[in-house]
Design a protein around this nucleic acid. Sequence first.
DNA 1: CTAAAAGATACTAGAGTGGTATCATTATGT
DNA 2: ACATAATGATACCACTCTAGTATCTTTTAG
Lengths: 141, 141
Amino acid sequence: MLITRSTDYAVRALKYLAEKGKEASAAELTQKLKIPRAFMRKIMQLLGKNGFVESRKGPGGGFLLLKKPEEIFLIELIKLFQGQVCLNECVFKKKVCVNKSSCFLSKKLGEIEEYAYLVLSRINLKEIMEGGRSYGETQNN
Amino acid sequence: MLITRSTDYAVRALKYLAEKGKEASAAELTQKLKIPRAFMRKIMQLLGKNGFVESRKGPGGGFLLLKKPEEIFLIELIKLFQGQVCLNECVFKKKVCVNKSSCFLSKKLGEIEEYAYLVLSRINLKEIMEGGRSYGETQNN
DNA sequence: CTAAAAGATACTAGAGTGGTATCATTATGT
DNA sequence: ACATAATGATACCACTCTAGTATCTTTTAG
Ligand code: FES
Ligand code: FES
């Protein structure tokens, strides 16, 4: 999987905040986006620690978007919630493979990773918001 | 991870068989490729069931390659050992997302998957054998 | 002072990967 | 025939990752 739920939920939350343009609480996000509450809170905390949103405690508090949608890149969220994008790690993880530089398979997988990285690096929140009306709208079941 | 150890080990085993040109037992593969024995056996069994190799029981028995290296494509091994290549599955796995067709993110991830699939579909064992002297040679640590 | 919010943090359940172990079956060579 | 060497089938285990829960503390509005 290129994208996990954490990342996806983060995108949805940021999208919601961007569209609203005002502060929103975790409770509101939870309800509107139909995402489990405790999980949403954890995600928002991480977004807060990393400068995507500002948080305000106390009654009426919540989260406020700190960046413009066009400044939020998908790759950053992926790195934040999933760690570095890596599709071609040699199967001998830690003990770095001595032959990696001359390994044909590694080279090919590296090409794929490079392409993926490029595509993901270009995608920003603004694009996601404009690209499809449907993303982030939850389904009926 | 695009490729797991099972797949990688399968490639190594097939490569060894192709280079040898004769039957080889699991014990031999295990020793030469430095892969855990029981694991190697499991992999060979799966390769046997799927027509990549023929197996002969009894003393002196082992596995014989059934296909030409240029007829063995990496994508087939990936499918066999890891299931279908899928990088862009919607986070709402089973309950198919109603909006998938108009989802911007899904479209972008689909592009990446398509590219990956294309690259992997073209790679065959012959290429891997010629491509780099080093692949499949185990390291010293 | 109370209640509503977020912060911090620990925990759990399930799936997938990597690997082991055991017993049954088949074939070979003497 | 029989011991042995090989694979077949199958069940099991340990570890990691993902998704999600739960609890307690801190801050702040009214
Ligand atoms: S085998 Fe390690 S990089 Fe190719
Ligand atoms: S949100 Fe389900 S396919 Fe995009």
